[in-house]
Amino acid sequence: MAKEKIIKLDGLTKKYGQLTAVDQLTLSIQRGEIFGLLGPNGAGKTTTILMLLGLSEPTSGKAEVCGVDPTFQPLLVKEKVGYLPDEVGFYENLSGLDNLLYTAALNGVDSSVAEERAKLLLEQVDLTSRAYDKVQTYSRGMKQRLGLADILIKEPEVIVLDEPTSGIDPEGVRELLALIKQLSQERNMTVLLSSHHLYQVQQICDRVGLFVEGKLIAVGPIKELGYNLFKSDPIRLEVEVEPIDEQLISAIEANQYVTRVDYSQKRLLISCQQHIGAEIAGIITKHGARLTHLSQHDYGLDEIYHRYFEEGR
């Protein structure tokens, strides 16, 4: 089965005067996929999302969502795409249920269907007991869950979440992400989420795209990304030594397989082409320093991100 591409971006560019917020973005996302847009603040994630929804016009390039160009037919796109903005807000003086019913009414959902659907969704996001309470009494995490229910009430094909985990405690984040994953599987929904929290995204995304200063510098499953990026120095050793001085570092750097050495808080991070733990230990003991810890380090998204971010600069 050839997978259907539900979001297609082709050379999408957005300029604000001199500043290029999004630069020649080409990307496609398949139906049912959970895609993470990763990048630091101001990398152009939100701008990209706004262009996807037709809320902002691209300077050049083309976007296609569910087979529709959002720049020219934003209403059709908005019927099929649910968008949860960064720091979503609700009408605080209305109850959670009423907020959902308002959205339903704006989407032309018949009022008899709407109430049933809203209650079902509130149950799914675990807000049934607070359905009739005013939103001003809700916590941040509850509002975010209500936001999720809010975008699902129009039964979208795609949901776009802008920084869905910002400002929520770790447990809340875990629950929210699990909920997103579960909902996307149940409804075969495509999810596009943006974040700068790497580990959170790592947990649920099928693929991620790394965004730095308007450019998409890498796309793919997280493992692949790491492999491609660190081809030249696939092994990383974490070493704890006392004392650390310049001579020791330069002695390690002198080894032919070592590509770089990073120093932070009594630890050395050594990137190398081969597993040379024994040699490193030898160098350290020869130098008269005390080795307390040596381990091989896996590349997490953190490193990938950091590496890319450095290169992007």
Binding site: L53, L55, L75, L76, K78, E79, V81, G82, Y83, L84, P85, E87, V88, G89, F90, Y91, E92, T103, L106, N107, G108, G147, D150, I151, K154
Partner: peptide
């Protein structure tokens, strides 16, 4: 300021 405008604009209304 309440953050409802962007939510409102994401609905299929002109």
């Amino acid at each position: 300021n309440r953050g409802t405008l962007s939510r409102l604009l994401a609905q299929p209304i002109p």
